[in-house]
Each structure stands twice: as C-alpha cells, then as structure tokens.
C-alpha cells in the first residue's frame, strides 16, 4: 500500500494557479525524484506535502494508522536554502529540532549524535553554525530533517548548490536513507535523478506530465540511442548511416555519431555489418540508455 496519496492537488496564489490537479502516490521505501524546469511548481508541491502550506483544493492522505492529523510529525523537510540559528552549534540545533518534534532531551541528544556521525559532521558539532561551509549546512539540514525518524523525507534541491564532492556525499547519503524511509526530492540535475531514484515525477507548469519508474519511462520512450565513436571524423558517412533502415535519426557531435533506433537487436546487426563492410575506423560502439534529458526536453517542450 502506498505511504502517501496526493489527490487532485491544486494551489493558487492570488488567483494564479501554481499547481493544477496534481495526483500521485508514493510507495514505501521508494526514492522519488520530482523533476521539472524552474517555476514548474516543485517547491510548492513539496511545501504542501511538508504540511507547511495547505492546498487550495485536493487532499493529501497518509496511509498510516494511529498517526496524528498534523503530518509534520512524520515528515522530515529540508528547504531549498536551509537557514539555521547561526548562534547555535550544530549539535545544539539538532537537539532543539528533535525536542520540537517531541523527543525528550536525552533521546534528542542520542539521535543528534547518531546523525552527526551519519552526515559526517562529528568533528564540527561544537562549532557555531555561522562558521559552517555551504556543504556542511546542507548536511546539517538533512540531519535535522531526519531527527524524528520520519516516514517520509522531503528534500528540496538537496544537491543543486553543492560542488561535485558535496553532491557525491549527498547522493551517497540518500542511497543510505532509502533503505528505511521514503524519499521525495526535487532536482533539476537529471544525472542525480537517474542515479538514485526509483521513480520520477515530471512536473511542468503545475501539472504532472510524466510519472513512473525509471524502467517504465525508458520503455515508454521506445527508442534506444547508440553511440559510435571514431578516432577521426569519417566524412560522408552520415548519409550511409541514414540508409540503414532501423536507424531513424542521426546526430553528429564532433567525432561521435548518436543514432536513435527502435529495435536494438536489428540495428546492432545492421550497423556492425556496415562498419565491417566499409572498414570504418570505429573506436567505440556504445548502447547508451535513453537519457532522462531527452525525455525531459521532449516532455517539457511538447
């Protein structure tokens, strides 16, 4: 059974609708990426699920028994730009956040120590937050979202503002977290989404335009990309490639050719035949997965 069901969510600000009839459900233990261009309503959706703003229309139902109506009790939320009480130390803030979520002081302290270990902030736990770097603050933000062991972790752009190392740390952390919680996070870094999420939800202009598991979305796409790399640009082969019947699109990027094909089996056979026959100096033959980027571009532009 789904952990959460959002039914026909609509949100209007001053009569301008930001979210328009959005429905989806989140399964237990899944990591779901919320994708969409800027201004597509990702943050507003997350803020509604975090209980921070109320939808104008529609409902959010948690399928959990014996839980209170206030779903902030079982949701952990990391805003896009987390701001803390900078005069506190990292550990003090976590203990404070834990106590706000109804943990006792002893429980909050114990949990804070665990999380500081998990997000790798143990060394700086006694330092004022004002001295933290951007990456440290982001990790502290994740720790505070986890302090009350929420069922659902909502992360708004958890890695977008970080350098590659910081991003890597956050992604690894998310992989850890999805072992025992459901994660919903927004991002516009498509590689991240491909890497850690099980499902995606693509929003544009306040509407869900694609949703499903990564696998499903790939099969929906119904095409595969094959990449041919050459050591030097083999001129005049574009036309030859186009003649192959299973290839329906050819893109040249420097010495690489990206071919979009329908049937991988047939295309591979035909291509390699041509390569052998013509004796092309092929350095690499790669079957690339359909990139989320294609899907994203297609969905958003249509």
């Amino acid at each position: 059974m789904a952990l959460l069901e959002a039914n026909h969510l609509t949100k209007t600000f001053n009569n301008v609708s930001v979210i328009n009839d959005v429905s989806f459900s989140l399964e237990h233990g899944k990591c779901v990426a919320l994708l969409g261009p800027n201004g597509s309503g990702k943050t507003t959706t997350l803020r509604m699920l975090a209980g921070f703003i109320k939808p104008t229309n529609g409902s959010i139902d948690f399928n959990e028994e014996s839980l209170s109506k206030d779903f902030r009790n079982y949701v952990g939320y990391l805003p896009q730009f987390p701001v803390f009480h900078n005069w506190m130390t990292g550990k003090e803030f976590l203990v404070y956040a834990g106590q706000l979520a109804h943990l006792s002081k002893a429980e909050a302290k114990e949990r804070a120590d665990e999380l500081l270990e998990l997000v790798n902030l143990k060394e700086v736990r006694k330092l004022r937050i004002s001295k933290y770097s951007g990456g440290m603050k982001q990790r502290l933000g994740i720790a505070q979202a986890l302090i009350h062991a929420p069922k659902l972790i909502i992360l708004d752009e958890p890695a977008s503002a970080l350098d590659p190392i910081g991003r890597r740390e956050i992604l690894n952390l998310m992989r850890e977290l999805k072992k025992d919680a459901t994660i919903l996070y927004s991002t516009h870094i498509l590689n991240d989404a491909e890497e850690v999420s099980d499902e995606i939800l693509l929003l544009n202009e306040g509407k869900v335009i694609e949703q499903g598991s990564m696998h499903e979305l790939e099969s929906v796409q119904n095409t595969v990309t094959i990449k041919l790399s050459f050591s030097e640009d083999p001129k005049f082969i574009e036309d030859r490639l186009k003649e192959i019947e299973s290839v329906f699109k050819v893109n040249q990027v420097a010495n690489d050719y990206l071919l979009t094909v329908h049937d991988l089996q047939v295309a591979r056979q035909q291509l390699l035949d041509v390569v052998n026959r013509e004796n092309w100096q092929l350095t690499k033959f790669e079957v690339a997965k359909t990139s989320l980027e294609d899907l994203f571009m297609k969905a958003v532009k249509s």
Binding site: Y77, V83, H85, A97, L100, A145
Partner: peptide, 13 residues
C-alpha cells in the same frame, strides 16, 4: 526573513 522560520515550522510546532 532569514528563513529559519521555515525549518522550525516544518517540525510539529
């Protein structure tokens, strides 16, 4: 204004 309000109020306060 600073935004810390959002973190605090995301807890069941």
């Amino acid at each position: 204004k600073s935004g810390v309000y959002e973190l605090i109020l995301s807890k069941p306060v």
